[in-house]
Design a protein around this nucleic acid. Structure first.
Length: 156
DNA sequence: GCCAACGTTGGC
DNA sequence: GCCAACGTTGGC
């Protein structure tokens, strides 16, 4: 069954335009170092799932498009590279600790669905993203929320 | 730039 | 196992 997710990214680090410019419009989603998010990457996020691509820590804050999961969870090998910024000495091939998935761009919204738009819509205003203090960089999105985001993208 | 919320660390 | 201190996230 297809499920839906929201991935946060700071556009200064990796934007949806960077994804569009990547080879095959694909990227690996490494560097997640939070156990709750790790569990979703490892256990729940499957090939074919939909991803809302959210730009955080920028102006405007917005879901800027969508992507599709093209490879489900596998060990984040960057954690095993001593020179890499995502290195974690506790990670090994026997116990990877951290996981990542691969995603591929589906579309960049002609107009981003801004946080303001999300807040004003009865369905999207209830998204985990909109709840105070939610710092999870990977979040589940319901089918209703997924549909509402697309409706807002059309209106926008 | 501020600061609240959160997760992690480490002393005890 | 508790919890204070600390670093980070991320909206505002």
């Amino acid at each position: 069954m297809q499920r839906f997710w929201l991935f946060k990214s700071e556009p200064d680090t990796f934007s949806i335009q960077n994804l569009a410019a990547s080879k095959g419009k694909k990227t690996s989603w490494e560097g997640v170092r939070n156990y709750q998010a790790r569990n979703m990457l490892r256990d729940d996020i499957q090939r074919g799932d939909g991803v809302c691509f959210y730009h955080s820590n920028t102006d405007p804050l917005a879901i800027t498009g969508t992507a599709e999961v093209v490879k489900s969870g596998y060990p984040d090998h960057f954690a095993m590279q001593p020179e890499h910024k995502y290195f974690d000495e506790a990670a090994s091939s026997a116990k990877p600790i951290w996981y990542m998935v691969d995603i591929q761009l589906v579309r960049i919204f002609k107009r981003p669905v801004t946080r303001t738009m999300l807040a004003e819509h009865p369905v999207t205003s209830q998204m985990m993203l909109m709840q105070k203090g939610t710092r999870l960089s990977i979040q589940p999105v319901t089918a209703d929320e997924w549909q509402a985001v697309h409706e807002l993208a059309e209106i926008g």
